[in-house]
């Protein structure tokens, strides 16, 4: 008797016969996550720069993103339904709102933690505002920014599953489809893949962070020795 017929939790036959379906769902999941975090980043960095340059805006910007963050995802997606209909754009827009909160806060915290001496030294060497930002402030804020990107990515991967309410939830779609027939192997496989995706994404971003900020490791190594 096959494990599909007996509805086992773990089923090799399921993996073999539905590999295409699993791949498609995983790709949709990754696509939605990557697009959401990238758009979040493109919006968050300028917002953080504005909030820093004009402290008057900092309060409202942080307040608004916190309010958005408090709205549960199912409600967020539902509120966007009249604007976007049943589309991937709806899910991406909702997820961008959430990643914004984390990214704005971390970028702002990173920029504010840049030592004043570093800024002064760069100005003394004749750096203009743009070069100061690009060559001194952003690199020094990078560890905080990368920490934000990692957190935003991991929670976006988890939240994408809720997109199955409009049929665009990546692996969440497989979970939803499996519920009416209590299809254990499909629910378990899709759930495990979600967690694996989050772990792999976190490790890849950690690796990227190390590549981009080699000086942080030298300092740690020097301090230890």
């Amino acid at each position: 008797m096959s494990c599909l017929a007996t509805n086992d939790w773990i089923c090799g036959e399921y993996l073999r016969t539905r590999s295409q379906e699993l791949t498609d769902a995983t790709l949709q999941h990754v696509g939605i996550t990557v697009v959401s975090v990238l758009i979040g980043l493109v919006v968050a960095v300028p917002l953080a720069l504005i909030a820093r340059a004009r402290p008057r805006f900092a309060g409202p910007v942080l307040g608004l993103t916190t309010v958005l963050y408090t709205v549960p995802s199912l409600a967020m997606f539902s509120l966007l339904l009249p604007l976007f209909g049943l589309s991937a754009a709806l899910v991406v827009t909702g997820l961008v709102m959430y990643s914004l909160t984390i990214l704005v806060r971390n970028t702002l915290a990173g920029l504010q933690a840049v030592p004043a001496e570093a800024r002064e030294a760069a100005r003394g060497m004749g750096y203009g505002p743009a070069r100061l930002l690009w060559e001194v402030e952003l690199p020094l804020a990078l560890p905080a920014l990368m920490a934000g990107i990692r957190m935003a990515t991991v929670s976006t991967i988890a939240l994408t599953t809720v997109g199955s309410i409009v049929g665009r939830g990546g692996l969440g779609n497989l979970i939803e489809d499996a519920l009416p027939s209590f299809f254990k192997a499909q629910v378990l496989t899709a759930s495990v893949l979600c967690v694996l995706l989050a772990v792999v994404a976190d490790l890849l971003l950690l690796g990227l962070q190390r590549l981009l900020t080699p000086w942080t490791r030298i300092r740690v190594a020097g301090g230890a020795g």
Binding site: A158, A178, F182, S191, C194, A198
Partner: peptide, 16 residues
């Protein structure tokens, strides 16, 4: 906790 989707956990409970 952040990496585990709530929907997945609830679904796992509902097929058990």
């Amino acid at each position: 906790g952040r990496a585990v989707p709530v929907f997945a956990v609830l679904a796992l409970f509902m097929v058990s």
